[in-house]
Amino acid sequence: MSILKTTNLTKKFGKFTALDGVNLELNKGEVLGFIGPNGAGKSTTIRVLLGILKATEGEVSIFDKDAWSDAVEIHKRIAYVPGDVNLWPNLTGGEVIDLFAKLRGSSNTKKRDELIEKFDLDPTKKCRTYSKGNRQKIALIAAFSSDADLYILDEPTSGLDPLMENVFQECVRDVKSEGKSVLLSSHILSEVEKLCDRVSIIRQGEIIESGSLNELRHLTRTQMLVETREPLGQLGNLKGIYAIQKKGQSTSFQIDSNEIDNVIKYLSQFGIVKLESAPPTLEELFMRHYEGTEDRVGAGGTD
């Protein structure tokens, strides 16, 4: 069941097109990773989802309601964490958390106190004295102590230390296990890999790739290192093999994921002594898309 869906979402600021036909879909109980470089349109998309910006074209529905005109109704079931948390310098962290809870409607004071404990926050300090990480914690505590059905998180861990990042990941897994949905915009690809079921990649206002991590991996190459008893033949003649390098006895190369079977069959003729393979990381996937045209994925079925 689709919780959030944008169809051909376009947002223009004057002549500048910030979003160009963005299609996103998030199903119930799913964690969707939303990745892209700075200025690609992640935060603009999220602000449209929240009804803070009005879409120039296209449809945006959350819980089958319109994100702009039914904003208040929708927000009763949404928890949002911005990437850059600006707070009122003369209120305390505790006051802001309570205020946010009240403004959303329901709140769970027991959960709030647990989270304050977990995130190790001193709620009696004025917001002007908090560091970036601490301000981020306030937004996270307010979000996860609420009883939302959809969590929209815009680079939520920027400024958190690794320990707190773990606490955050735990929180996401908890809400996922309760059947809630999460939209996670992030730069930290290891985090996305750990948490997300599916990923959408945005670049210059356009979604250029969408799918489960497995699907996306099919689009890219696996790194392999092989050592054989007999010298390898003309490896370069095979389909889907790139970047061959000889290192003494062993050879390393990259291989299109859908050609693995053929290549292994070929290699086995030479008597494999050692075979190492590393799955493509999201990082490589990401880099491939951003490094420009030179190395774009050519082969393989897109969905």
Partner: peptide
């Protein structure tokens, strides 16, 4: 000098108007 603040928001603060007044 700045004083240490409150741990929780008063009932008064918990609305947009209350927040605006407080600020």
């Amino acid at each position: 000098p700045s004083k240490p603040g409150k741990r929780h928001a008063s009932r008064f603060l918990q609305s947009p108007a209350g927040l605006a007044l407080r600020l």
